[in-house]
Design a protein around this nucleic acid. Sequence first.
DNA 1: ATCGTGGCTGAAACCCGTTACATCGCAGGC
DNA 2: GCCTGCGATGTAACGGGTTTCAGCCACGAT
Lengths: 341, 341
Amino acid sequence: MSTIRDVARAAGVSVASASRALNGHSNVTPAMRERVQRAAQELRYVPHSGARSLTRRKTDTIGVILPDLFGEFFSELVRGIDLIAHRSGLHLLLSNMRGSAYETASAVQAMRGRIDGLLFMPPNANIEELKTCLDGVTPTVLLNYQDPALNLPCVTIDNYAGAYAMTRHLVEQGYQKIVHICGPAHNFDARERLRGFRDALREHAGQRNPMILPGDFTEEGGKHAADMLVSGKTGFDAVFAANDVMAVGCIAELEARGLRVPHDAAVSGFDDIPLARHITPQLTTMQVHIDRLGSTAMLLLLRMLGGEELDASQSNVSVPSLIVRGSTGRRDAAKAPGIIG
Amino acid sequence: MSTIRDVARAAGVSVASASRALNGHSNVTPAMRERVQRAAQELRYVPHSGARSLTRRKTDTIGVILPDLFGEFFSELVRGIDLIAHRSGLHLLLSNMRGSAYETASAVQAMRGRIDGLLFMPPNANIEELKTCLDGVTPTVLLNYQDPALNLPCVTIDNYAGAYAMTRHLVEQGYQKIVHICGPAHNFDARERLRGFRDALREHAGQRNPMILPGDFTEEGGKHAADMLVSGKTGFDAVFAANDVMAVGCIAELEARGLRVPHDAAVSGFDDIPLARHITPQLTTMQVHIDRLGSTAMLLLLRMLGGEELDASQSNVSVPSLIVRGSTGRRDAAKAPGIIG
DNA sequence: ATCGTGGCTGAAACCCGTTACATCGCAGGC
DNA sequence: GCCTGCGATGTAACGGGTTTCAGCCACGAT
């Protein structure tokens, strides 16, 4: 592998001139530039980005730390980020932390000297340790997490408003015994969605003690919840799952148990994953533009890289929109078999 | 940001000793190590990976260059890669090339000095330019592409065998007018699948001029093909789409046009995306373990990083397995309405 | 007492670029 | 003809680590 010194030697000039010629500085004669470029080409010289970033104090790389690299959420998020990053000639350094706080801290630290900025989606675990390793070292934008203690801009989804809107939709459709399958207890999104569900049900249906089933955001979890519902003695006529994946599992299990959706019970989800449109009945859900989440975060980060000082007040909250499909078809009083259970 | 010199000064030792103490070299007294570690902790010292990789000639980073960062294929592939990479403490530097050959070349070059090895999935465009920039500079494993001219190990899917097996399955089920919706003409996978289809049909059904419809691997493409089929005058009783996404589009369109699958016509796909199990009828398809593709490639690359000299002869071909589901349900002679068209 | 040995330690070179600063030559102004 | 100023070029420092090599010291052996 040839270095810039090799190029300089081959061209019979100093390394400084070689560097200037190759980087398009103006104070270089055309003849000199020509000579250097020719030498570089012949030696197949490619600058060593690592060395370059050492002096430039710029790596042209953005770190992306996520809880896991899995599924639709991940791919859409990265797509959104890359769309903007690529446009600015930035690379993406990916890291996951497998949920562990220790891994998270080391992942953040391992980024030092590799990146110019960080997009960080914290795990649901305790955030305390993060504060120490995130203290203004590198420009950072948080994804899907908000913490007043960390005065960082963040890009989030308004889970509360989304769950509220969905619950209200179900109430307005005439459903009376609406059950919520929630996500993991420590999950930020899950908690907010549960809160939205609770508030909407209290404010629009006057219910104070709705039925809540535990869930884990997996298809199996949705099936399990449906199982409990059908076997249980509590009646229900609608299920609002905290995400689409569980809703899909729930529908599958309900139908396996002989119930028809939405005829016997409505089911709705959250996220609008591609699958939502493809199952039968099509799933009513809250549409979240995950790619936009990534793009927005990246745009904020670009501003920070440009020197702007952004803080939590610049945070961006995107409100998901209600997509009504077949799975919550208007409850027809004539055909409805009444509340199950 | 404190450097190792700051740490050395604080501990009252030389940088060399500080470096040795922090990197766990054996020739350091416990007292010295203690002093240095304490100083590092107090100064919140984190080594600068960029600088470190300059001397070590090792970046602990793997470059991953893909045609695009999109969809299930991408996320599964990255998951498989990360699974192995993470285990070895390697980071992932992601790059896409948007199909352009120029971008590809510059993406590969931009990796110089940033990575220890490369996982590369070439675009379908001409490979010629790549040879020059891939010439043994860095250990490389090719994904899903094989080229005798590039003597590199590659990890591929046996598209030919998969398509052959699927076609044979359809023939054995009794279907007689089997149509293939193929992928983009320049796509390597698509061409191989088409070839497998052709050969199987010739060898097992004696057909030499099967009906081939153009496609583009998108849902819309599948719908369009179904549209042509239904409107066209050529009869068909089974459709083998070159990927699941098109198969899904095809089924949707067929049903929209009043045909039932598999009653009126069978439909099968290729890839076994998660959606395949969720649509009605469930899709018969060839299961491809995309995550394993990534893991296998990463394992090969690890061996190369370990000093082994691998070449094309070490390539790994994974044969997809046939997953029979409802969409190609055995053609029941009694109920079948005969060939449509 | 002397010499050799071995283990720690520190100074300095090195990795590969970029850039501040010094130098040089040349043209123009007086 | 001499000085000034400017633009092109070269030298060397620098960025932040790692590593080689030499020096130092204490210890054991002769």
